[in-house]
Amino acid sequence: MDFGSINPAVLIASLMVASVPIMLAALGELVAERAGVLNLGVEGMMIMGAVCGFIITIQTESAFAGFVGGALGGAVLSLFFAFLTQVLLANQVATGLALTMFGLGMSSLMGQGFNGLKPVQTPIVPLGPLADIPFFGRVLFAHDAMVYFSIAMAGLLWWVLKSTRIGLILRAVGESHEAAHALGYKVIRIRCAAIAFGGAMAGLGGAYVSLVRVPQWVDGITAGAGWIALAIVVFAAWKPWRVLIGAYLFGGITVLQLNLQVAGSWIPVEYLSMSPYLITILVLVIMSSGKGRAHNAPAALGQNFHASR
């Protein structure tokens, strides 16, 4: 195989960029699911984030404001979900699917008139001489802030879930809401917060697609990234660092397979095209099998809670 024309530094740098949207969305969904909420509306929240972020960036000419707006857009949409499932006790699966459809339609409506505009470029974080280090400079020190933010969030969530009181309460709510309720924790309130966090993260991921990855607005721009994020949460066995690995694997192989095609690899294109899905699933399944709990899902995942029961 001819790897000669593929520059590994460029490849790794592009895979880090390509992975950001699904990683952010998957981390947000992970928090919601660890709190026992199955929100299948990730795709809808992502695209709302994408359109809100885009509109705000066009209006304010600030990429930072765009990302804040994207997070808000995703969070606001997720609050609809929170209201329906946590207050009105609607079925989470059906509501989540409806949320995706609603988000797709709503974003298309809001995006009218924004087709074909170009947002301001999101700046690369200036790290001065670090960026000039051969290989590592290109790979590690020449990205925009969101790339670093996504990695930092994976670390932060791992620490919060594992070692803090907030993380413990969140997990308790997700494992047994009755027990958490008996201990005096506000199950509904905690879950609403987790849902809003998930929405904000999905919104950020969506905004990254419309502001950095594709820099434009077209209807349906996220094109299924939300579903990939959902799958990665499951295959990562609800662990943040595995989400990072899963997202990088998926993003990495997506970028690699396209590069291999350009380089004229002997591997048939069909195999290259399916490889991101196949290899990500395989690796994560292998990682989560073996010793210990293979089945790691939060015990109360998808179940609604009402204090009277």
């Binding site: 520059n7 460029v10 490849l11 592009s14 390509a18 396209l258 590069n259 095609q261 350009v262 380089a263």
Partner: peptide, 9 residues
Amino acid sequence: DAAKALIDQ
């Protein structure tokens, strides 16, 4: 991504 892969090469 496809366009980027082409440009990268």
